[in-house]
Simulated assay, not measured.
Amino acid sequence: MEEILKQILGELEKTNKRLDSVDERLDSMENQFNVRLDSVENQFNVRLGSMGNQFNERLGSMGDQFNERLDSVENQFNERLDSMENGLTKRLDTIERQTADLTEFKTDIKQGLGDLKDNMKFLMLREVETQKDIFILKQAKDK
């Protein structure tokens, strides 16, 4: 029986050694897993940081492009507005000149018509006087 107990004890010691070996291998695998997990986590953080930087750069670039396009549209709008304003100013200046010319023309016509009216009155008066003189001469001749 002692021999059986020694055999069982030997088997138990072998089993213990095997379990210790398995335990060491599990510890080693756990350590390897933790190292790999840390490595993957670090790589993930690095890549995530890189992607974040790229995203921020692209977002900044898009913002710059948007601002450039907005500035361009604003400049075009201002140029067209200035052009329209200049065109309207020129048209208003032209209208003012034409109005002044027409006002001067109207004044000249009124003055001319006044002078013509005076001349017509004078001529009518002269004609009446001439007719009177003819009448007097005819009567003097007939007497």
Rank of each mutant, 00 (worst) to 15 (best):
E11K: 09
L12E: 14
K14F: 04
N16G: 15
N16Y: 07
L19T: 07
S21C: 06
R25Q: 14
R25I: 09
L26Q: 08
D27P: 02
S28M: 10
S28D: 13
S28E: 15
E30T: 08
N31D: 15
F33P: 01
F33A: 10
N34Q: 15
L37N: 05
D38Q: 12
S39L: 10
V40D: 08
V40Y: 11
E41C: 03
E41N: 15
N42R: 13
Q43L: 11
Q43M: 09
V46A: 03
R47Y: 06
L48H: 03
G49Y: 00
G49H: 00
S50T: 00
S50V: 01
M51L: 10
N53F: 05
Q54Y: 01
Q54C: 03
N56P: 01
E57T: 13
R58Y: 00
L59H: 00
S61W: 04
M62Y: 08
G63P: 02
G63Q: 09
G63M: 07
Q65V: 05
Q65C: 02
N67I: 10
N67Q: 13
N67C: 04
E68I: 10
L70I: 08
L70D: 02
L70A: 09
D71I: 01
S72V: 01
S72Q: 12
E74V: 02
F77N: 10
N78A: 05
E79Y: 02
E79S: 09
E79H: 05
R80H: 02
N86I: 03
L88D: 09
L88N: 12
L88Q: 11
T89K: 13
T89E: 15
K90G: 05
L92G: 05
L92W: 03
T94C: 05
I95T: 11
I95E: 13
E96H: 07
E96M: 07
R97V: 13
Q98H: 05
T99L: 14
T99K: 03
D101Y: 03
D101A: 12
L102K: 04
E104T: 08
E104N: 11
E104P: 02
T107M: 09
T107A: 15
D108Q: 15
D108A: 14
D108W: 09
I109Q: 05
K110S: 11
K110C: 00
K110Q: 13
L113P: 03
L113A: 01
G114D: 08
D115P: 00
L116S: 10
L116A: 15
L116F: 11
K117H: 10
K117D: 15
K117V: 09
